[in-house]
Amino acid sequence: MDWAAVELSIRLATLTTLILLVLAVPLAAWLAYSRQRWTAVIEAVVALPLVLPPTVLGFYVLVALGNRSPIGRWWVELTGSPLAFSFNGLLIASVIYSLPFAVQPMVAAFVGVDRRLLEASTVLGRSWSSTILRVVLPLSRTGITTAAVLTFAHTIGEFGVVLMVGGNIPGETRTIAISIYDSVQAFDYDTAATTSLWLLLFSVVVLGLTYGLNSRGRTIWPRI
């Protein structure tokens, strides 16, 4: 069992989830509550990771973060170390890769908030951001939990993007999924089986807990 990979995956998933929760709220609110020419375009861009193969996404991120790109050079100047094949690069890739999993449940939840409540808040003198914070977020708890869990689980399970952007550096970019792949390549089926089982159980428990908590207050089909 590759505990370093487990630790790395959990660290990556936690940070990705935290960053995405902060980024996705204003983005989802904008998508849910404005009707401009740009809305559809941004919505499509956000959904891209759902349709693109991870390798394609990973390739573009790698090019964008590489030492020849302005972003890559700027980062090297700032920190002295390259972005590609590093944990930070991996984090950026994960954030982009999981964006739709954070944004879409939030948009769905925000759209479901009674429009009249938003109007009431505005009439009572509250700004856009204050209304999002005081009315929309508390009433969208289910959607936000779903967004957080999906993001976390999706990051734990990502493989293609990590391989493209992160490579396979133990303790730096070797996540659980990569570790399992390595074990299989090395015909170490025992380790692969243990790690896989661990990942499977972890996923079932986390998802089960979330859906259990979220099912409160749900409408139940009337029974005879």
């Binding site: 009249r116 109007e119 009439v123 009572l124 003198g125």
Partner: peptide
Amino acid sequence: VRRRGIGYLF
């Protein structure tokens, strides 16, 4: 709207 100082009863 928020600076108009109105009350609105829905």
